[in-house]
Design a protein around this nucleic acid. Structure first.
Lengths: 146, 146
DNA sequence: GTTGGTGCAAATAGTTTGCACAGTT
DNA sequence: AACTGTGCAAACTATTTGCACCAAC
């Protein structure tokens, strides 16, 4: 997700209006590395706009996704999470505490990915999601099993 | 997913009963490389057991997942898909026709994955999902854009 | 006979939409 | 003024559960 000024320009180009709600949602997303769900973004937005609706949040997220400014993550079977970082990178999802953290991937490796899967030569790949699922250190220690 | 005889043994060990419905679902899954959804499996099962319920299919899928005989794929935001192949491998999901195909990955590369993400050393990784999302050759040609 | 399974129907929850009014341009 | 965005409420859909009866063991 790019600078707010850039987002504003993109909204204008697309004939979309700049509303306080949208701006707030953009600001909220920009600094959030926690991969929030729509619901979580809605609750944070409520603190700024006590009368904002979930619908507005939802539609804004759709808009930002269509503009390619955020990406949706489908790791958590229970809900979609949103990520302001659109460059391909990996994620670790903890099945216990549901936390979702970035896994850095150096550009060289990212570039190598396509080579690992020669079959995708025929496909038009829009994005790649690499998800590791399991238990984070905290949750692993909580459940010592036996 | 292993041989049916092996599955039967595992059911017994776990104190689970061998019912015709379960056996049929296992057979259906075993030969299916299309990554069906629960609904699709249900419809195939209906042809064998005209009175089978979605609930039974659903619960059997849960059981097989708990036994580690199948894995759930979270690529399609609209529904969960099931895969009888539990070894780590990648998938390509077509956003247009919703097809989901396997991307082979040689064992060496699979093994390398962990090295690409040093951060996961602290995590207990249960499984890895690599998803490439975009358009398959057919759908790409259908939408020539401009 | 005991225990777990099946199937029906209803509940749950995340997501999506229709529409009237309000705000941006 | 024109047109898009907002917010409410309702619809939708995949998923999950409670429970009475049935079947495997």
């Amino acid at each position: 997700m790019r600078e707010i000024t850039h987002l504003v320009a993109r909204f204008r180009e697309a004939g979309l209006k700049i509303t306080p709600q949208r701006l707030s949602i953009c600001h909220l997303l920009k600094d959030d590395r926690t991969h929030p769900s729509a619901e979580e973004i809605y609750h944070k937005a409520l603190e700024i706009h006590p009368s904002i609706s979930f619908t507005t949040v939802y539609k804004t997220l759709q808009t930002l996704r269509e503009l390619g400014e955020i990406q949706e993550l489908n790791v958590d079977p229970e809900r979609v999470h949103y990520d302001p970082e659109v460059r391909d990178h990996a994620h670790f999802f903890c099945q216990s505490c549901k936390s979702l953290v970035d896994l850095e991937m150096d550009p060289l490796n990212a570039w190598m990915m396509a080579d690992l899967f020669p079959q995708v030569e025929d496909m038009e790949v829009h994005h790649t999601q690499i998800h590791m699922v399991g238990l984070c250190p905290k949750c692993r220690d909580k459940k010592p099993e036996a």
